[in-house]
Write a protein that binds this DNA or RNA. Structure first.
Lengths: 149, 149
DNA sequence: AAAGATTGAAGGTTCAATCTTA
DNA sequence: TAAGATTGAACCTTCAATCTTT
């Protein structure tokens, strides 16, 4: 890979890309915080617990699915446990099982529509259907460059 | 804007988008940290000081150009000042003037090739030229939906 | 009062070191 | 020993409150 200075065109692309990511994440995060009382990270954890595990998951599995380091997840779960959103207990297979509390479920249900609306407003509704397709294929290629498209 | 549940297709797009942003930023940040000793934020500040202002800029101007809140920039500049990368002094026009130190310049020069190589490796070289065009137009539309394309 | 900047506290993230248990 | 998880310190981000100068 070359390390020559980025051309103006390359620089523009990089800045536009970074700005888009920063802004969309910040806007969705702040809608979620404001209208559902959850951070983006909290919503991610809760929705995975519900969607992937019907309410509970092994901590390791959760960390992998979020592409998070274990210590990041551990700190995050500690805070969420203090807020009453989830519980942890030793898992039969070893490791730790994480499960939603009743409060966690309620907060998550209330957050879904807020999240959906925000993602539409700040990303989905701004794209043509061609752009949607292009964005999917770009994301796949960038995240996982070996695979065929 | 609708707040109905996101469809599987919408969810996939959202997750792919978020993952791409997270991964690229994390990879470039960690290359920069590892090979140049700078965080992404520090590189952003230093390179703007050099590129936009030939070495110095008003703090407010810098904040605007990074789309940062003033308090974020203030904390960041305090840390960078402690590390000897820059100086602050009252500006003639009011406000504060920020300028690169000699050390700041040196560290930045050493970081440029690391940054360029990393951005190519993790983003630019993974895109076809059609995808580059598409990504620019997507970024512009998402960041600034009112404007024509 | 308004503009520009700083501060402190609380929350979030990373890294390396440590603990625990199979 | 290795896998899984936790901890503490350092750093970063956000928010609201405050300070300073015009």
């Amino acid at each position: 890979v070359s390390n020559k200075p980025l051309s103006p065109r390359e620089l523009r692309l990089w800045h536009a890309f970074k700005l888009m990511g920063d802004e969309v994440l910040a806007r969705v995060g702040s809608d979620l915080e404001k209208d559902a009382g959850l951070s983006g990270a909290e919503f991610g954890v809760l929705s995975r617990l519900r969607g992937m595990g019907r309410g509970e998951l092994r901590q390791q599995h959760l960390a992998d699915s979020m592409h998070w380091h274990k210590s990041r997840l551990s700190h995050q779960l500690t805070r969420m446990q203090e807020r009453g959103y989830l519980e942890r207990r030793p898992a039969a297979e070893g490791g730790v099982m994480v499960s939603l509390t009743e409060l966690g479920r309620e907060v998550l249900e209330a957050a879904y529509p807020v999240h959906a609306k925000s993602v539409r407003a700040h990303l989905l509704d701004r794209l043509s259907s061609k752009q949607e397709d292009a964005l999917v294929s770009i994301s796949n290629r960038v995240t996982n460059p070996e695979e065929e498209d």
